[in-house]
Write a protein that binds this DNA or RNA. Structure first.
Lengths: 292, 292
DNA sequence: CAATATTTGTAAGTTTTCTTACAAATAGTC
DNA sequence: GACTATTTGTAAGAAAACTTACAAATATTG
């Protein structure tokens, strides 16, 4: 046997048992962080028992998980694999002008940093509390930001009732605008070129007394004095146009905040949403659950 | 203390005793193979005793050699994207365990690095080419990943014709599955718990000869041997559940790739899409454009 | 060059990681 | 649908990795 760890893992995929396949797949996906894992840590991540990890390594031809790691050392060779080295590598390429894209990486990283700073602000806490407690939560996004609203909504729905996307499908925004302003709030994702809808929606919602949170790019000049909170997410990463990608990260952090705010009581709901999905659609590996 | 492993080791060089200096030097020069070492193996390599290794790690501020290795894992080294010292603050809090979140920042950063590396791969180029040239491009995502598909679709639509979301609204996926496989391709976003739909859709699409690209988390064990390309995006950022946020970044990079592939001819289309939006919806600052 | 302080190693613990034995669960077969 | 074979988990034991206590060696200081 002279193949590399990667090759052996791949080869095992065809023959291996269920647990082994899960392991092999995970290892392949996370090859570069394997050296930091231990049989036990791996086991808990993929939900198998510790001995299964050891046994699997033996079936693919190593003495133990430790032994597998030692071989990994060989075939990682000298390409950079520590995050810091990889980052350096990308940065060097960017400097050398070899890699247009890589130049954007650092910008994207600083956008992330900015978001994590936002998440520590007073305003953030306020929004999170509102998203956790207001009876009806609406999110909107137009053009390319529609997906961001979708992400927020889909996730929040796992945690609580009364969350929905707002769009112009019905021709107006009556769902929100003709509702009790005390029991509603709105989150809008927006970026250049700013849709007239965001603006009109915000104005009308504010006039009705509905709290509005705006997540937008650094160029937005219409929102600041109109909305309750404005979270500015950097969007220029050397790409051909603005990338609002990091807004997804912001949305996830918001959801995480709401989770922490709501506490253990969300578990019941998450459980039941999962069970409903299982019933109507089903998950991989399990048959559709017919609420037996 | 908020410095990286490398920084701490370097700093120790000036003050440390003879054995410690030897250790620090060795570690610095072999930083990337440290995770494979153990206190004992290191000790014998530099001819000191095992406890000396442990003690040294403690003098530079780690609990043990193991602890030092663990920090190496997340260590991203120099941070040129830091415009202020505010991140230090974040990091310190993370170290002190006050701020669960801040620890997630570094994980999220390394996910980004991973994505930018993906964007350099053979497979990536292949997918970009396909997304640029195939007549009909479909994207799907279920549960919380629906928004990711949405993001990809909404952006691609600015660049080219024939791009659409795929969902179960019609009860089947006939749009794609009953179409000419030579002229279609599919991108699926997926993460735990894996929807049965992704799996079935992939299987059927493959059987029909339609190329499938899967963007998923490291735990996915059903796709690897089924799809044409599998992009694995790290998703564990210390949040209460997996965050697929960085998939948005991947989607944006894909779109950017397609833009570069298509070249200047996209401008006309972008212009006309913008103009259509202006006509039917309008932008902030300008009245609805009535195709005067 | 004592006398003291610091550094380092040895040997015996402690904890962590991995393995083995066996039983329970799951999948395959007639 | 019982029977067998395979896979997987539990619990206890072996091995490895790391720590502590203390003594020996090496610096440092007056």
């Amino acid at each position: 046997m002279g193949e590399s760890v990667r090759e052996r893992l791949s080869a095992s995929l065809t023959t291996a048992s269920k647990a082994d396949r899960v392991l092999a797949n995970f290892m392949l996906s996370e090859l570069s962080s394997l050296p930091f894992e231990t049989a036990a840590s791996l086991a808990s991540k993929v939900n198998v028992s510790e001995p299964t990890v050891g046994r699997f390594c033996r079936t693919v031809g190593y003495k133990s998980f430790k032994d597998l790691k030692d071989h990994l050392k060989q075939d990682i060779g000298q390409k950079p694999w520590l995050v810091s080295d990889r980052l350096h590598d990308l940065r060097d390429r960017a400097k050398a002008g070899e890699d247009q894209l890589a130049a954007g990486l650092e910008l994207e990283i600083s956008a992330l940093v900015a978001i994590y700073e936002l998440a520590r602000s007073e305003e953030w806490a306020r929004v999170v509390r509102r998203l956790a407690t207001t009876q009806r939560v609406y999110a909107a996004g137009f053009q390319t930001e529609r997906g961001m609203a979708q992400i927020l909504v889909n996730q929040l729905q796992y945690l609580r009732d009364g969350v929905q996307m707002l769009d112009l499908a019905g021709g107006n925004f009556a769902e929100l605008l003709a509702s009790d302003p005390k029991q509603s709030c709105l989150v809008i994702f927006e970026a250049r070129r700013y849709s007239r809808l965001s603006f009109e929606l915000t104005k009308t919602a504010k006039a009705a007394g509905i709290p509005v949170t705006l997540v937008t790019d650094p160029f937005c000049d219409w929102g600041r004095d109109l909305v309750d909170e404005m979270f500015v997410v950097p969007t220029e990463f050397n790409q051909f146009w603005e990338s609002t990608a990091q807004m997804a990260s912001l949305a996830n952090l918001l959801v995480n905040g709401v989770f922490l705010e709501l506490g253990p009581k969300v578990e019941a709901r998450m459980e039941s949403v999962t069970q409903l999905y299982s019933q109507f659609t089903g998950y991989v590996g399990k048959p559709v659950n017919r609420t037996s």
